[in-house]
Design a protein around this nucleic acid. Structure first.
Lengths: 353, 353
DNA sequence: TAACGGTTAGACAACGTTGTCAACGCCCTG
DNA sequence: CAGGGCGTTGACAACGTTGTCTAACCGTTA
């Protein structure tokens, strides 16, 4: 409220200046203006400064859309990013890493949330293609991406993140989900646990299945058959996870250690443990790190993913493809990391050994 | 790796189909194709289905950029969103609310991070204007936004969020920072505290100053002059806040209650309290809510903001302006809310009363 | 049968920019 | 002094789409 005039009351809403306006004011041809604003050679110093002055005076900004329409290659210097949700901190980290990697090249990022909805996946991919993005980074949801990606977008660089795509051959960046799961198992086993349980996410999500597989296989290698491991799955929110954990803790033979395959599931498990007064009695390892994990009582041991590395790699793949990389698409795996904070190092009670 | 052919090996990288291709295949004029894909009337059913079949077959998608170049009004159906950082959960919530409000109108969101850097603010605004976004939602940083927003963008809807702009007359959506601060003070006073301290963010940030002002004014009304309130400011990260809190707690007359003006500052204070074993002895109220605040020991009482409401209002303002709203720009205030969880209800020790 | 109105259809120009190309002026060389 | 080469410059078409406008066709009415 500092100025007096209302931005919205100025009547004629004067047109945004075009290159022609600048050319007219500077007394040159439009092509000369084009050369100046694009830093192309072949313009005398005298004209260059005249043009720059006119640009300044009119506050002219090129229309990139019009430019890329004519320009060879048709680059729009924008990419589309499809995440589970832009409000999700894990996605936010990926987003930021991608932005940081693309900004130096002047590439802007369209971001959108999928909410695990295959319909949205398809619609948003189409919306971005209509906007002629130079590349696409996306977390796949639909069973197959073949129908999501139109045939004739074959030259559009696409990188899948977090989950590998199906039905289409493209670059992908994923965490080592199975290895992470086995890492969790090995860690708990090394502290003497023999009664372990698994709390997992929706089984139609590939990463969740991988984490479970890695966890159970590692237990199997230590002589604990999967049939002996209570496994509760399809937990998609904190409340469901909380109830499942309560159920586990009140079962006939409660586990002495729990592996939760995802953030919200971990939160639910933490709640249940706290409510049962078992936070310091039953070990917990969660997949995926989160803020303040070290401030919990006890601190929560996790298998941390590295969203910033996933994002950086995804952006690098897009750039490489834009720069003409024709190599076979492949999958890059970002290693997970065990972070020890207390909850995963609780020992089983003597009688349970 | 499901299919055999490499997407990047198909030699001629065939051109994306245009309206002309569709028209040729369907045996009609381009304008008829245009009418069909834009759902305009005046096309016989026979031709309509022929066009749709051709669209399907070629997997044609309109080029929105080319369309809006010609189309009156020049809408690109995209907006620019400038946040402190897309990786910041508070920003993520705002982002999501904006996306949800604009998606039904087919508007896509460019998101970018400012990192509190006025240079980036200016550069990113320019980048979005070059892309001809239909509107701009931004968290202002520079001392004045007058030079950030070019003169001739006077018809471009702009909404400022979180902080009010200076030097430009535009809509703004903010939290009731001062009231929130006074709410925190009143809450702590009502539990008998008389020795309170303030831990604050960078003093050049308007919101931080407002929160402090509200807090101190409320104390003043209860007869506690600002001069008696230890005030440590310019804390921009968790570590600085932690050190400041330690200092406070080890001072001659340590406070019995602390108000921290921002998330990272709250985290630092929590750390210091835990390290000093004072978590249950010194009251703490933080500005801004965060995940797992209720799982801390004790739960952290906060003055919660409502990012989802801020985002929704911002999007609604943009839409109203796009729809021709010419009213005076003004500021909308989103009320904060006290959430009681334990840390703010700790009583001062008897000897301190 | 002629005139008319309504519907359907496509030719054409234009949106703001850049690639292509021809033309201009200047300086240098033979 | 003619000719060649080089550095500048702008006219023009084209990018993919849509607004405008006119034409063709249909059925109806006088």
């Amino acid at each position: 409220m500092t100025t007096l005039s209302n931005r919205y009351e100025t009547e004629p809403a004067k047109q945004r200046p075009t290159m022609r306006d600048v050319a007219a004011l500077a007394g040159v041809g439009t092509k000369t203006v084009s050369r100046v604003v694009n830093d192309e050679p072949g313009v005398s110093e005298a004209k260059r400064t005249r043009v720059l002055r006119a640009v300044e005076q009119l506050n002219y900004q090129v229309d990139m859309a019009a430019g890329s329409l004519r320009r060879a290659g048709r680059r729009t210097l924008s990419i589309g990013l499809l995440l589970p949700s832009v409000a999700n901190p894990f996605s936010g980290e990926i987003h930021r890493a991608i932005e940081d990697a693309l900004a130096p090249r002047g590439i802007a990022v369209f971001a959108a949330s999928l909410d695990d909805d295959p319909e949205r996946e398809k619609a948003l991919v189409a919306a971005f293609i209509r906007r002629r993005v130079d590349g696409l980074v996306l977390t796949p949801i639909a069973k197959s991406q073949a129908h999501v990606i139109p045939q004739h977008s074959h030259d559009l660089p696409i990188v899948f993140i977090d989950r590998e795509p199906t039905g289409i051959d493209a670059d992908a960046i994923v965490s080592d989900n199975a290895i992470g799961g086995s890492r969790a198992a090995a860690h708990l086993l090394s502290h003497g646990h023999t009664r372990l349980a698994y709390l997992g996410d929706r089984t139609d999500i590939q990463t969740a299945r991988e984490r479970r597989r890695g966890f159970l296989e590692e237990l199997g290698r230590s002589g604990i058959p999967a049939s002996q491991v209570p496994t509760i799955e399809d937990l998609h929110d904190e409340e469901a996870a909380r109830r499942a954990a309560h159920e586990l803790l009140n079962s006939q033979e409660p586990p002495t250690a729990i592996f939760s395959s995802q953030n919200l599931v971990t939160f639910g498990a933490m709640r249940a443990l706290k409510e049962e007064g078992m936070s310091h009695k039953v070990a917990l390892v969660g997949f995926d790190d989160f803020a303040l994990a070290d401030m919990m009582e006890p601190g929560i041991t996790v298998i941390a993913q590295h969203p910033e590395r996933i994002g950086k790699l995804a952006a690098e793949r897009i750039l490489a493809r834009l720069d003409g990389d024709q190599s076979q698409p492949s999958t890059w795996v970002v290693p997970s990391e065990l972070i020890v904070r207390g909850s995963g190092e609780l020992l089983p009670p003597p009688q349970a050994i």
